[in-house]
Simulated assay, not measured.
Amino acid sequence: MTTAKPKVSRKSKAESVTVAGDPTMSSLYVQSVEKAMTVLTAFDGSKRQLSLSEIASITGFDMSATQRFTFTLVTLGYLSKDPESRKYELSPKLLDFTYHYLTSNELVSRATPYLQQLGSETEEATNLTVLDGTDIVFVLRIVSRNVFNAHVITGTRLPAYCTAPGLAILATFSDGEVQDILSRSNLIAYTSSTVFQPGKIRERIARIRKLGYAHTEDEYFVSDISTAAAITNAHGRAIGAVNIAVARPRWQPDRDEKRFADLVIHTASAISSRRRSD
């Protein structure tokens, strides 16, 4: 007589990854990786070097754990330790990740010749940004001799709600998604011109949907004027944005807004169309 094998209950893939909607509670989640990344992100640019005690204070780890993680990261080459001051700083090896991202990213590859052409035609800074959480991240930046802010570089993060590229991206999302992003954003006035009230932002996004482009002036940086359009996928959802940034002394309202709006709309559409045709 054959004995029937008991049925084994198998968790679904989603159940194996998350527990009660929290992926950090999954058995697949490696906390030591999270802690190592926490140490690296303690170097936020406010200080070039950090002491062991400063890293411990920022991360909330005890000194023993901080010492183990910094030792490991130095050994792997992602942190450098000054032998005299005994302070730590980020290593150039971290740029390997940036290099691999930029060289392997399809959107960056496709957008590059278009942004180069746009920069050549306007003699202004042109940018490719993507949304990450509540921020836009600059993943490609073509600067010109007229560049307004040289401190904005690849990897710079700015809030989506008050930047032209961010607003252009948000305008392609549903109202519910926009509300969720705004609820998680730190809505503050960076300048006297910043639109940071949720209701006004939603009204603005409704206008952007009709116009097909976003335009901001002096909202994050004073004297910075930006015009952007979204790069979309086959479903009309933004996967990035193209923008032109102009310093106020070079801005002529009667001439420039429509001209730059047409340029970014055309450029974003061309990049979007190429992606859809593949």
Rank of each mutant, 00 (worst) to 15 (best):
V152G: 09
F148S: 08
P165Y: 01
Y161M: 00
G176T: 04
V178T: 02
D135K: 01
F148V: 11
P159K: 05
D135F: 10
I169Q: 15
V139D: 07
H151N: 13
V147L: 08
S174H: 04
G176I: 02
I153C: 08
R157E: 09
V152H: 02
D132K: 15
G166R: 05
T163G: 06
V139L: 09
C162H: 03
N149V: 15
A160G: 05
V137W: 08
H151L: 15
I169M: 15
I153F: 14
T134N: 10
G155K: 05
T134G: 07
L128C: 01
P159E: 00
P165G: 02
A168H: 03
A150I: 12
T163N: 00
V152N: 04
I153P: 02
G166L: 06
Q179M: 07
Q179G: 05
V143L: 07
L167Y: 00
G166H: 03
E177Y: 13
L158R: 03
T154I: 15
T163S: 14
L158E: 05
R145Q: 12
T134C: 10
C162L: 11
T172Q: 00
D132T: 12
L167K: 10
A168Y: 01
P165E: 00
G166T: 07
I136L: 12
V178Y: 04
A168N: 00
P165W: 04
Y161D: 04
T172N: 01
T129Q: 11
A164D: 11
H151W: 08
A164K: 04
T163L: 13
I153V: 13
R141S: 13
I136Q: 13
N149Q: 13
L167R: 12
T163F: 07
N149K: 11
N149Y: 15
G133Y: 00
L140I: 03
R157T: 08
R157M: 06
G176F: 03
L170T: 12
V130A: 12
N149F: 11
T154L: 12
L128W: 01
T129G: 07
T134D: 14
T163M: 13
Q179S: 13
S174E: 05
V137F: 12
S174P: 13
F173K: 12
P165A: 04
R145Y: 09
L158H: 01
V143F: 09
T172C: 05
F173T: 06
F138P: 14
R145I: 11
I136D: 10
G155C: 00
E177P: 09
R157D: 11
I136V: 15
V139P: 14
T156P: 15
C162K: 02
D132S: 15
N146E: 00
G155R: 06
